[in-house]
Design a binder for these strands. Sequence first.
DNA 1: TTGTAAGCGTTATCAT
DNA 2: ATGATAACGCTTACAA
Lengths: 360, 360
Amino acid sequence: MQSIAWKKNNLNFTAKIIRMSNQPETTIHDIAKALNISASTVSRALNDNPLISQATRNKIKKAAAEMGYRPNVVAANFRTKRTNTIGVIVPLINRHFFSSVISGIEEVAYEQGFAVSISQSNDNFEKESKIAHSLFANRVDGVILSIAMGTSSYEHLKLFSERQIPLVFFDRVVDEINAYKIVADDFRGGYLATRHLIEQGRKRIAMIGGPQNLRIYQNRQAGYITALQEAGLQPDDAFILHNSLTRKDGTQAISKLMNAAIRPDAVFCANDTTALSSIIYLRENNIKVPEEVAIVGFSNEPFAEVVTPSISTIKQPGFEMGKKAAELLIRQINQKETPDYFETITMPTELIVRESSVSK
Amino acid sequence: MQSIAWKKNNLNFTAKIIRMSNQPETTIHDIAKALNISASTVSRALNDNPLISQATRNKIKKAAAEMGYRPNVVAANFRTKRTNTIGVIVPLINRHFFSSVISGIEEVAYEQGFAVSISQSNDNFEKESKIAHSLFANRVDGVILSIAMGTSSYEHLKLFSERQIPLVFFDRVVDEINAYKIVADDFRGGYLATRHLIEQGRKRIAMIGGPQNLRIYQNRQAGYITALQEAGLQPDDAFILHNSLTRKDGTQAISKLMNAAIRPDAVFCANDTTALSSIIYLRENNIKVPEEVAIVGFSNEPFAEVVTPSISTIKQPGFEMGKKAAELLIRQINQKETPDYFETITMPTELIVRESSVSK
DNA sequence: TTGTAAGCGTTATCAT
DNA sequence: ATGATAACGCTTACAA
């Protein structure tokens, strides 16, 4: 990164000559000169500082508009050490859940005068770490993130905690770090999904679970196990598989389950992606869904509704989670002091029953 | 925005006292002092300026690391008037096509030492305009964008062109503005889709088209018409509908088509969303796809593959388009001079044949 | 190869 | 209610 900077500066050398013609930006000093007042007055007026009289304020704003003044926020950020920007790191922006969260974050951030800078880690630790360093270097006022599946070291997040830059986790949270955390009720989601399958008369309910280093997947599984036990069903290790929940992982998992001596009559999948690949696998192998195997997914991705059979799933309140995360972050940014204790806020999940799980 | 800034500064007043304990950031001056050299040498060394000897460079970097030095890029950006950041505005990050483009942009941007700031307009003109102002105020080095459906005034983009901030359009481009444009071959896409339907023996091919103020939808339709004419089929205005291509629009459009005196035996939809809602409508009304009505969509959204019947569609090279857009933008940023003429780069589209269009 | 010093545009302190 | 001035941390001519 550093060496690149140097190369660029070399290029700039010739560029500068060419750009001579560019009109320079109007600054508060230009306005001050034009109006025969001081730059500080201009600055105050433009920021609606109440010390400035209404009359001069109007005069200044009018002049600013006429002169095509554009505040240089980089200069202001530099001076104030604030950027009015919050950084967001998500594994993948292309997941409906994550983009819902982002929309929620944006809604409250914009309302409060913050810009939002979004980056995706691609579920890759290296990338996440790079992004964290970049956000830090760019002095974002706070960060909202859901960590990558591949992340197990949290060194890169110390950047923020050490300098008291507020951090809010959502969904994939880190227990070891003290911060506000917004999670969906994954336990209840797993519980509801499994209980629903039990209510449909299923007895041999398998689970395709996610990486157990992530709390959300632990919780979904815990809900599953609790529901089984509550119904007097014995959880069976052979029926619980773990992987990274990609399309391919799902296919492998369902294939393993269906080729075992004892086949499940239902599968609870820890996300919709593996629910989908399970359904496709079963269809290709002429195993009827839901008649022979019932399926429930997790997250309510848009495709879950339109696939045939449509996928029963657990809905997470992504938009609301995003709003909440942004609210908590901005409150911390504005208060500046570190809160005494950090809550973990759990938001309700909801079962959506569709075709893939309903015995006729 | 301005008045908000003032309120925040008020809050900071008390905050500052509380934060007294914060250790101040290490600066290049601290390093200089510690090593008894000048700050400029430190700056040069850290930027790998070849003027600095290997020995002192190593010494400085070591000290910087030990002292926990973190470059203040806001200060550097302020000084150099560059932010090494490119802004991206897309209608919706949650569309597979757009997130593919974003991934392509990120790939080359990161490689070249640029950060990427992503925003979504939600297909809303006001939001797009706000974002443009925010990106401008934050002095991004260049912007890549696909305009919102609701955008018809381009005042907000003059911000960039007037100050020679390079702009690259992709997909939804603006004819009136002189800039590099990266588009998929929409004409050919429309042509291929329609020709495919003709080859399947369809005679009454309708089209659900997009807003005609957007060139891409004009082109998709032009391809459709050309294919029809080439086959000696007469384009029929009653068979061509226009709307905003949402799920709901698609349902309304297909319903109108199917309730008319003369029903189509095939529909080319200008996006996959309307292809999907058409299929759902047809299924609900017991009209067989593809037997009675064949469907082709556009964009190859992930759901197109997994829906039943799977949707034949046109694939756009989103990732490649993103890479190309970023390359062109960064070239302009580095060269700084305005190119003499701007190319419009058309990237190939491809027909993907699936179940929704193949007569058995 | 290194140092000196000016300056980027803004905000904030202190004075009036 | 307004002004003068310093300062933020960095880069970069120019000097040595």
